[in-house]
Each structure stands twice: as C-alpha cells, then as structure tokens.
C-alpha cells in the first residue's frame, strides 16, 4: 500500500481545494501518490519530502523555495530529464522523479 499522504490541508475555514485525480508516481523508485496536475513539488512536500537536490560544489541540500519557477532551487530529474523546475512542472501519472545530484546527467 502506498504511504498515506500526510501534509495535506484537510479542513480550511475559507478555502476548498479542487484537485485532479489521485495518481501514482515514483520518488527515487518508491511509489507515492499525488494529484494529477498539481506541481510535482506540492506532491513531494505532501509526502514529507523536502530535499529535492544536492548542489554541485558544496553538496548542500536544496528544496522548494520561490514556488514560481524563478529561483532554480527545486531542480530535479524527472523521467530522466535533469533540471526540471518541479515547483511549476505538473504531476502526471507514473512520473519518475529523482533527486538531482549536481547538474544532473543528460541522457
């Protein structure tokens, strides 16, 4: 069974969230669930994943930061493609998401 999604807002006094279909995707080979067409970053954070990549030189962990596709903090490898900004790239069923180490590898 996939792990229960934990960091979702269940009840909000003002907002209701309209979500897509619940789909499977993979993080570092592990099966997780997220909603189709939400940013990949939202699905990862909902599953408690914070470290999105490791920097090239200083080997520092990086994660979600600007949320609007400007800062490059959240670059990950998605379906073998490196440098994907997961804060704006939308989740699709079966996506394989990997932490990016350094600049990632071009295939």
């Amino acid at each position: 069974m996939p792990k229960k999604i934990s960091n979702r807002i269940e009840h909000h006094p003002i907002l209701t969230f309209v979500k897509g279909r619940l789909v499977k995707f993979y993080f570092e080979g592990k099966e997780l669930q997220g909603y189709e067409n939400e940013p990949i970053a939202a699905a990862l954070i909902a599953n408690g994943i914070k470290v999105f990549r490791i920097t090239e030189k200083m080997k520092r962990p990086r994660g979600f930061f600007c949320a609007v596709g400007k800062c490059s903090s959240c670059l990950m490898t998605v379906d073998s493609k490196p440098n994907v900004m997961v804060c704006v790239e939308l989740l699709k069923e079966g996506m394989k998401v990997e932490r990016q180490i350094g600049r990632g590898k071009l295939v």
């Binding site: 960091n7 969230f17 939202a42 949320a67 609007v68």
Partner: peptide, 10 residues
C-alpha cells in the same frame, strides 16, 4: 502558493 493554492502544508 503551496498552502492556499495547492492545499499543502510546508
């Protein structure tokens, strides 16, 4: 954005 648009807690 994360909280109010996507309903996820940072």
């Amino acid at each position: 954005t994360l909280m109010n648009v996507h309903g996820v807690l940072p």
